[in-house]
Design a protein around this nucleic acid. Structure first.
Lengths: 339, 339
DNA sequence: TTGTACGCGTTATCAA
DNA sequence: TTGATAACGCGTACAA
């Protein structure tokens, strides 16, 4: 780093004190207009750039928000980040980005780093494996505001921004039931993870409400990726054909793509023989053949709302926790055979 | 923010000086083993978390890298960021993320912010509009290392990580020519932007090399988005049918999707009547109908290489600039009618 | 209106 | 091996 001129440098140049320079540059009231002009001119001419690090140290706030993202893949997380960045930019906050890699150890490390960097607050969507309650407790004890988005842990005192996963999973299931499907399989996400459990519960609720049986052999646990859906569907299709489902509800779109691939490999037609629906509205879903019926979880909106809530907590030093439900949207396409 | 214990707090607790605490915690050689243990124990018990802000102030390095991304959309940029983050995580650097929103004013603001935050270096892919040479000159003058990836400005002394856009555009064009296409249209990107100009030049070179005419009415300028490609293609299809191209080479995949939509709207068959190819290997390209022939620009790899080069500059204080060409890959799918 | 003294939390340097 | 002092760049509090 080259030598950045400091307040002191400007002060010496003008034979005044650095405090006057500081005041002049910060629009403080009690500064002679003449002095202010001279200072501003000198600052510009010398290429003065305020040192935010020094400011942070003395102000005890960094104007920086830390984000812990499971992984920057697919459609969801990038859109969330975009939403977050748009808000932080306008609010004058900076964004420190970390990935947990769906791994609770790295998640812990990320949180540690962010604390060390003294971020003013943290946005987090939990990692897939092993919930590390400990780190979150630590944030609470340290009184560092944080907000969950999408994937959360409840009853920890932090605000949560999410969609109504359970409700929309029910809605989707009812949509299938309403069109005459009875044997509905569920390729669910990993157990113990909020979104995943919620979506499963929503499916179960709707099935029971309709008086339909949930066949254990038609419920398979997969991850959030293509291969998980592929394997799960393969297992289902190894059942005797008469036990095959009429429709499959997948935890998210990538899993649905995998399932689709498996179904095709078995020479079965979608949606004629088996209907399939996803959840997450991946970029590919609208253009894949057949276009996938899904739920759009409004990632940009979630990011926006989460960071707005966080900034509110930071500015007002108000840690009142809240659960914000972003309105999702059921998107009916051809894969469910209903249009 | 709650009260974080400081070195001083630990020192007082143990009746020693804060320097000894600092040394003990930083594995300095000259510390009594007994003392070290007591310090470490106390630090742990008191929940000491080093203040990176204070460290940065005195060390004059933040261990932070700033990134200026045009916009976090589509497939490319998120993958780049993922590559960057994987490397910075392992190298112990932090990531300060900003978006320019394809807008040179916001790009300037981003760079200003990053300088103010005293990042150790910057990664940047230039915004679409109005090249702001000034800000980059400023970085050079301030001796702040920075590396361009994907979109760059040449001869400014910064390293560049990119693919061989021109070469691969030529390769793609030759691929089309090799399969008998003669009237090849080009839906090009905005003028004055490196990747866009390079890809156009590659197309021109290949056409001339093959002795084929470039018909001005078949060269249209579009942006990088769907609607640009859509409009450009609409214009082309308003020509008398005998002037229609046999194949269309688009600056990137989203533009190709737009073009595809326009072609379909005109009831024309792809690739039978008109072949179409893109560039960027968007997530959707493999699953769209027909699957799009394209070039994979290896975004993850570009991010990785760019940040590795940057960290090298930072650590060795070696500002030798370099041009790193990441090997791209031509991906032939059905939209070009060659398979 | 301007200046002085001091502190933010840490490390470098030199002395003990 | 340990400690005292100063410094990083800035802002708060008070004095002039």
């Amino acid at each position: 780093m080259a030598h950045h001129p400091t307040l002191k440098d400007i002060a010496q140049e003008l034979n005044i004190s650095s405090m006057t320079v500081s005041r002049a540059l910060n629009d403080s009231p009690n500064v002679d207009e003449d002095t202010r002009e001279r200072v501003i001119k000198a600052a510009k001419q010398m290429g003065y750039i305020p040192n935010k690090i020094a400011q942070s140290l003395v102000n005890k706030r960094t104007k920086t928000i830390g984000v812990v993202v499971p992984e920057i893949v697919n459609t969801f997380q990038p859109e969330v980040i975009r939403g977050i960045e748009d808000v932080t930019y306008n609010a004058g906050f900076n964004l420190l980005l970390t990935q947990s890699g769906e791994n609770s150890e790295r998640e812990e490390a990320s949180i540690g780093t962010l604390i060390s960097q003294r971020v003013d607050g943290i946005l987090i969507s939990t990692a897939e494996t092993g919930q590390s309650y400990g780190e979150f407790q630590r944030l609470v004890e340290l009184d560092i505001p944080f907000v969950f988005y999408d994937r959360y842990i409840r009853d920890i005192g932090a605000s949560i921004v999410r969609i109504d996963d359970k409700g929309f999973a029910s809605k989707m299931t009812r949509h299938l039931i309403g069109h005459g499907y009875r044997r509905i399989a569920n390729i669910r996400g990993p157990k113990g993870l909020s979104v995943s459990d919620d979506r499963f519960t929503g499916y179960v609720d709707a099935m029971e409400e309709a008086g339909l049986a949930i066949h254990p052999e038609l419920v398979a646990e997969a991850g959030f990726r293509e291969f998980g859906g592929y394997n799960a569907m393969n297992n289902i299709l190894e059942l005797p054909e008469k036990q095959w489902p009429e429709a499959v509800f997948c935890v998210n779109d990538p899993a649905a793509f995998g399932a689709l691939q498996s179904i095709r490999a078995h020479g079965v037609k979608v949606p004629d023989d088996i209907a399939i629906v996803g959840f997450s509205d991946d970029m590919r879903s609208a253009v894949i053949g057949p276009p996938l019926t899904t739920v759009n979880p409004k990632p940009y909106e979630q990011g926006k709302r989460a960071v707005q809530k966080l900034i509110e907590c930071i500015e007002r030093h108000d840690s009142r926790s809240e659960e914000i439900i972003v309105e999702a949207e059921l998107i009916v396409r051809k894969s469910c055979g209903c249009i």
